[in-house]
Amino acid sequence: MKVHLFGAVSSPSCANYALQRTADDNAQQFPAEVVDTVKRNFYVDDCLKSVASEEEAEHMVNRLTDICAKGGFKLSKWISNSRTVLMSIPEERRAKEIKDLDLDTDQLPVERALGLQWCIATDKFQFRTSLQDRPTTRRGILSVVSSLYDPLGILSPFSMPAKLLLQELCRQNLKWDEVIPHSLSQRWRDWLEDLQLISKFKVKRCIKPNCFGRPDRAQLHHFSDASQDGKSTHAVKTKTKYWILNANSAARKIISRCITCRRNRGKFVEQKMADLPEERVLPDIAPFTNVGVDYFGPISVKRGRSLLKRRYSSKRIMDDGESLKCKPGCKRLGAFCETTNKDQCFGKASDKTYFATGSLIVKKILNEN
């Protein structure tokens, strides 16, 4: 089998394996940087690579074309922010947007790079938004916020208020198609007005100044203020590839040690109770016929200004149901047990908990204490 189906679930995986295998099989014939580019700079069928000079760019284009041809891949639709590099590429292998352009005088177009708007002439990223007419509901707001494509997180400071608004709507248990309150709708309208200004916002693709020269090494220092609404991180001294090692883990540890964050993000504790003994829930017996007294401990008891800790427990001798051995503390159950005036039964709720009713038991408890 020499071909694969186009559009199958396995097609991206097969294509990626073939590309990686091409780089491995020809690693001895090409420079290490070219082989590494094939392995690390391809996203499905798109390759994005940045080099320091135009000479290196021309060399990279030629070597990448040669190594991919070894595996049957034909690279095309080349584009660059350098007119000199574009002129060195044959016209049939250039992107269709620049094939008919005069590279000496014509303005270079705006191209898409993995979904981002890349202005080739200025070498900057920019954002294009189309204000959609959506109802002022949870569903409409989510649709507009999700349409803002920002894979690098450049617009996070702008999109955060809209996401916080969605969180507030969830807390109020508003339905998906329910119109939001007036106080929140004003916040949403203000955010939509700012959204129209996003098209004027641009970010340089290369953070290094043009006249800076070749750096020996690069570090990324990121500082962020703490916030109760959004997670912030503080990462310093990263590798030259700008990969922050264990950044999320470090942020979670900092948040977990913050007392204020733990109070705001804490979950409510649900009281867990054991099932009642069978004798208490029989359907043919009137309510409160069998009344249970559970012994538990330890509990804190205050004597004057001192806090004492006592353990209260009981143990029943399994004979005729009238004798009971108790440890100190059972007198405190007298007020509760005095309400019973009828001899009933003993019952065992579990290995460590007992229940009993009846005037005979109350007298036995009071006599022994």
Rank of each mutant, 00 (worst) to 15 (best):
D36T: 01
D45Y: 03
K77H: 08
V362F: 13
S183H: 08
I141M: 12
S314C: 08
L197A: 14
K325S: 14
L184Y: 13
F212S: 15
R189V: 15
N341C: 13
V236G: 02
L165R: 05
I120H: 01
S350W: 08
S80D: 03
L174S: 07
L324Y: 12
Q186M: 14
R305C: 04
D25H: 06
L148P: 00
D343K: 14
S224I: 15
R171E: 10
K342M: 13
E91R: 00
V291N: 01
E33Q: 09
A121F: 06
K267E: 09
F296L: 04
I317W: 12
L174I: 11
R171M: 10
C47P: 01
L165A: 07
S53G: 04
M87R: 04
I285S: 05
A69Y: 00
K241N: 14
N367T: 11
S130Q: 09
D45K: 02
S249R: 11
L155W: 00
R311I: 06
S314G: 07
C326T: 09
T65H: 05
A218W: 15
P151F: 06
I285K: 06
L174Y: 11
M60K: 02
A57E: 04
I244K: 09
D351K: 11
E270H: 05
F158E: 01
D24G: 04
T136F: 12
K237L: 14
L166E: 02
D320Q: 11
S313Q: 05
F336A: 10
C326Q: 06
A113Q: 08
R217T: 15
L166R: 00
K124F: 01
Y312N: 08
D45V: 03
N62G: 09
R332I: 15
D102C: 01
D343I: 12
P283Y: 04
A274R: 10
N62H: 09
K309C: 07
T136C: 12
E91L: 00
G266F: 05
I285L: 05
I154P: 00
E111C: 05
I89T: 03
D351C: 13
M87C: 00
V110L: 08
K70W: 02
Y312P: 06
L360H: 13
D123K: 00
H4E: 07
R128K: 11
A286R: 03
F125S: 04
D351I: 11
I299L: 04
S159W: 02
M160C: 03
E54W: 03
H234G: 09
F223P: 08
T357H: 08
D100H: 03
V34G: 02
K49A: 01
P12Y: 07
R189M: 15
I207P: 14
D123W: 00
I255F: 08
Y312A: 08
K2S: 11
F6I: 07
I259V: 12
I120N: 00
V9W: 01
G292L: 06
Q29D: 00
C337D: 05
D343C: 13
R93S: 06
